[in-house]
Design a protein around this nucleic acid. Sequence first.
RNA 1: GCGAAUGUAGCUCAGUUGGUUAGAGCGUCGGGUUGUGGUCCCGAAGGUCGUGGGUUCGACCCCCAUCAUUCGCCCCA
Length: 430
Amino acid sequence: MKLSTQPYKGTRDFYPEDKRVQKYLFGVWRQVCESFGYEEYDAPILEPTELYLSKGNQEIIDEQTYTFEDRGKRSVTMRTEMTPTVSRLVAGRRQELAYPLRWYSIPNLWRYERPQKGRLREHWQLNVDIFGVSGTSAELELIQIVDGIMGAFGASAEMYTIKLNSRKFMDYVLSDYAGFEAKQRLELARLIDRLKKMPYDEFVAKVDAIATPAQRKDGAVEKLLTVLSAKTLKDLPKDLQSYASINELKVLLSALDQLGVKNAEFDVTVMRGFDYYTDIVFEAFDNNPDNNRSMFGGGRYDGLISLFGVEPLPTVGFGMGDVTLTEFLRGHRLLPDLVSETAAYLALVGDVHTGAQKLAAELRKAGMNVAVDLSGRKLGDQFKIAEKKGIQNVLIVGENELKTGQFTLKNLKTGKEQKLDVKGLEKALS
RNA sequence: GCGAAUGUAGCUCAGUUGGUUAGAGCGUCGGGUUGUGGUCCCGAAGGUCGUGGGUUCGACCCCCAUCAUUCGCCCCA
């Protein structure tokens, strides 16, 4: 039987040209995060299943994760997100860490589900978290980072929109303000999340179906619909304007505007699931309608580390996945042409292998990435090899060159040739 | 878990109502002789038409099953 060369369902092979793209993405992520003073951490890809169970969603564990028993009969799960893990790490050193704690990571995450556009079984996600800041300056900083990252990729404000809302506020609206029960709130939250994906009448009918006759009589449905119709914070009913989270959103949006982030706005339909978020949440969408999946998102989750038996800590974090980001960048033609990490290919003429290796060693010592031809083929073929590998320069090495110390360097992109000694090569290739 | 579409050369695809040895472009390999790639010219290799079964004198084409891929729904921590 022949083995298949295809990667496992929903996973990707990173051939060098793909890995080059990944290295570019990760490089930008790291550079921007570190420019804001964030430190990189990592942790195992396997976690005890309880870490995810503690959120109480058995169904998700059973149906959408890679969960199995190890040889010691312990149930382990491949991480599907980084938030529980980073909470575990912080809780473990709760007392000794210096706050505000600024951390980031680029974990490989796994989920068991049917692959579709922008959603695979395995992906890489930038995770950025700030611990120990209870005011909106934490949210502000994270959105600035997001803005910095997108800017570093060449994205402009018109290409995407950052939508903000408050989970605490929405909980208040659904419970105290409109008067829905806990079970209904869960259903409504999911429904609100999908509001823009269905005709408005259909949405209203579904809300109506959830409400009890008594609630309908009390105007619960109308109250909710009025809140949901708000396009800006000012459109909200007057009695909600003074709610603490709304004030915070106002302050945050105004600060963002002053800092030059022009594509952030209030959106009452942003819910971000119904898990550990406690207040302000945000989510970003590609303005290109062909790519309607959320590109990245996050929010405040103040209580999570208390699961580990330590005092809760105010925390805000966000995640940005490589799959949706790559689609965004491709869609807006923002992915640059990435060339080989190898600066020059040493093409050999005649029996000069040892001499060429000596030269290569010298160049490497000076910090250059160079590969020596081992094919033994004729010069034209060696050019083709370099071309195919995406190497920008060919350095011709023959007996004359080794004798005189003057080498011909040809740039394959421009076709330009120059005669250089080792010092000159160092300048040209680094 | 549900629904739909698609599987023909390494890749992208064509293949007329079922009829002899299944095609193209790109890519690969070789050649166009002396130390220069990309363009051009010539030539070659490469397919049991996803797999299994059925209908038929005859199947890439029709039917059934199965696998894979893609898209959507559910879900999205």
